[in-house]
């Protein structure tokens, strides 16, 4: 027992304490969180735009061309792996310009997430009773005003939990950022492995940190869900 423990302590020391290697983990976590937060913001913006275009088309038959573009975007993004999209954007689109890799990652994951957010929000918009729309129009609100004041606020509230889940999915998906040499949480664990030739301990630590963050987020989403369900409005 003591032998096992002293070996464990030794491995722990080599992987995390020596040469301040724990900083690969903490710095990586910060990078992961940064990518996730900015990408989710971009994704929500794109997602709402696409959802509004798509549901406007469904409701009114207008915006035909924009709708086709949106559908193409949804098909391509949801039909290809995110890591391929990331590589295409990094090595393909931004190949000839010097640009902060963080920006590339945020754009790639934002565009990716936007496709999923769009379908979440669209289902939220379509789930609002059409009487709400008619009540708005009958007062004299035009289409856009009815969307902004009446439909979107209700749809947003309905889809908040689903958006929270999308945030969790996105957090885990950013773990492929290492493909463009970003030093995110996963890459941090990998760097330690390459120094210490110990795969298990750093990767388990990385997994434990993802899990902890996800559990915290799930707890918050669950709390939000309960609050929305119980609230009168």
């Amino acid at each position: 027992m003591t032998e096992w423990f002293s070996e464990f302590a030794d491995r722990f020391y080599r992987n995390f304490i020596k040469e301040d290697r724990w900083q690969y983990i903490t710095d990586g976590l910060l990078v992961t969180i940064q990518i996730t937060v900015f990408a989710v913001i971009l994704g929500v913006v794109i997602g709402f735009l696409v959802a509004i275009i798509r549901s406007t088309h469904d409701k009114t038959g207008k915006l035909k061309i924009a709708n086709v573009i949106c559908r193409l975007y949804l098909t391509v993004i949801r039909g290809t792996p995110v890591v391929v999209q990331l590589l295409i954007i990094y090595y393909g689109i931004f190949a000839s310009v010097t640009i902060d890799k963080m920006i590339v990652a945020v754009i790639a994951f934002g565009i990716n997430s936007g496709a999923y957010v769009a379908e979440i929000v669209r289902s939220g918009i379509m789930s609002i009773d059409k009487g709400q729309f008619e009540a708005g129009r009958s007062l004299g609100f035009n289409y856009a005003q009815t969307m902004i004041y009446i439909i979107i606020p209700q749809a947003f509230k309905n889809v908040l939990p689903a958006l929270g889940n999308e945030l969790i999915v996105l957090l885990k998906e950013t773990s492929v950022s290492g493909y463009i040499a970003m030093e995110d949480l996963t890459k941090g664990g990998d760097i330690i492995r390459s120094r210490t030739y110990d795969a298990m301990m750093p990767l388990l630590a990385v997994a434990a940190i993802y899990l902890t963050v996800v559990i915290i987020l799930e707890f918050l989403v669950g709390k939000l869900e309960r609050r929305l369900r119980n609230s009168d409005h």
Partner: peptide
């Protein structure tokens, strides 16, 4: 039509109040 609808109040069978507003 939006201008003229302001002058035409409508009341629905299902009320259609806005649930997210007081």
């Amino acid at each position: 039509i939006n201008i003229h609808r302001r002058k035409m109040g409508m009341v629905f069978q299902q009320f259609n109040l806005f649930p997210h507003m007081n």
